[in-house]
Design a protein around this nucleic acid. Structure first.
Lengths: 219, 219
DNA sequence: CCCGCTACTCACCGATTGGTGACAGCGGGG
DNA sequence: CCCCGCTGTCACCAATCGGTGAGTAGCGGG
């Protein structure tokens, strides 16, 4: 494992075009944030660190300290960015306009949330982070995500009132918990409690079961 | 965050009584495994490494390489140990002897699983690990846990057959997903989807909602 | 008694981490 | 013009990581 000094970039033929970085703080800040988001989405929170983000952003980590005050500030910025999540995935025909019953609404919401999370690696990674650590960092991020989710649900819910006699908040939380864990387990290991979660056929089964559960309580 | 030394040094006086470790390979192996399990349960998988385990076990990490073939082997040993989980929490009055319907059974199973996971930090950490990483290490551990869970469910189920017309495997997987995520979120952040999960009152709400959902599908 | 096996410890390796201080280059305002 | 401040780069720090090779200490058998 002796590493000879092979990295001499003073090769005579190659004209080293240094590709001078334009001095644009705004662009650099955006590049850092984008790098952080993509890194977190693709690699997960395990190897999410100053060095890795700087490497991906193609700049020096010192700039992260300067512009964001370190990883904490950067994570906060990601959290703030999460607000756009809501805007991005609210269909124009918002909410329960055409939905007659609360059951209709919740079934639709459940399936939409399932699909949305399945296609959002960043959200999934944040979710996994939340249940794995309890640092201040994560807590803030979690709060941002939670707020975004609540806002999304609220926008989609419209003005439909839940039926009496059931603790809708608790039931919905349990349903959401199921959705979130299904998505996490599916993305991570391809299965959950013996149920395979790989093919779209598998997911249809899960979705059907989910529908059944929701319909069971809300009719 | 230097963890306190766990070595059992006595005689705080100047008398250096090094408390010579008895030369007992079996005991050392057991100490290492116990240290690994408690470390994982208490600190989570984030800081779970050779050095940390050796530190907690009060021995040199070299021994972990020798006796377990490194962290991988040690994790495997933890997985094997998970088999005892089933034995330890199967009540003598096993299964659905007194349960008339499949709904009765699943409701009881759901509540039992919820309680069991709530009181098992090691299982929770493994669960969180599973949804956060997809290395070979975790995959093996996941398989062991999955097997243990399946065995437990099987033992508890008895010979009761699920009703026709519902994909019981899928529904149960979704229910288990909900339980697991509730426990994870509760332990990590104290809430899930807006539902607080701190006091026993909170957990009662969640359990009630869970019961409702199960009863909704299985009657 | 000594020898050899085995349990165990120690010292070191290269790599990577988070974090900081010093420096280079450009550009705008006096 | 010169100088100052902002942007970006680099070198370096201590700490920790996983991993290995060499050496020590005790016990049992010849």
């Amino acid at each position: 494992m002796l590493n000879e000094a092979v990295n001499l970039e003073s090769s005579p033929g190659a004209e080293a075009a240094p590709e001078r970085r334009v001095r644009d703080r705004g662009a650099t800040e955006r590049a850092i944030l984008a790098a952080a988001k993509s890194l977190l989405a693709e690699e997960g929170f395990q190897n999410f660190g100053i060095n890795a983000v700087a490497r991906r952003a193609g700049c020096d980590k010192q700039l992260i300290y300067r512009y964001y005050g370190g990883l904490d500030g950067l994570v906060e910025a990601i959290g703030a960015d999460l607000g756009t999540w809501v805007r991005d995935r609210i269909p124009e025909d918002a909410g329960g306009m055409f939905l007659l019953t609360y059951g209709d609404l919740m079934e639709r919401l459940a399936l939409l949330l399932l699909a949305a999370l399945k296609n959002d690696p960043l959200m999934r990674r944040i979710l996994a982070w939340e249940v794995s650590e309890n640092t201040e960092q994560v807590r803030r991020l979690s709060e941002a995500r939670s707020k975004a989710l609540a806002l999304w649900l609220d926008r989609m819910r419209g003005s439909l009132a839940p039926p009496k006699g059931v603790d809708a908040a608790a039931v919905n939380a349990v349903v959401i918990a199921a959705i979130q864990h299904l998505v996490l387990a599916g993305a991570a290991g391809g299965q959950c409690a013996g149920l395979s979660l790989k093919t779209s056929k598998d997911w249809e089964k899960a979705a059907t079961a989910l529908k059944r559960l929701v319909r069971g309580v809300y009719g």
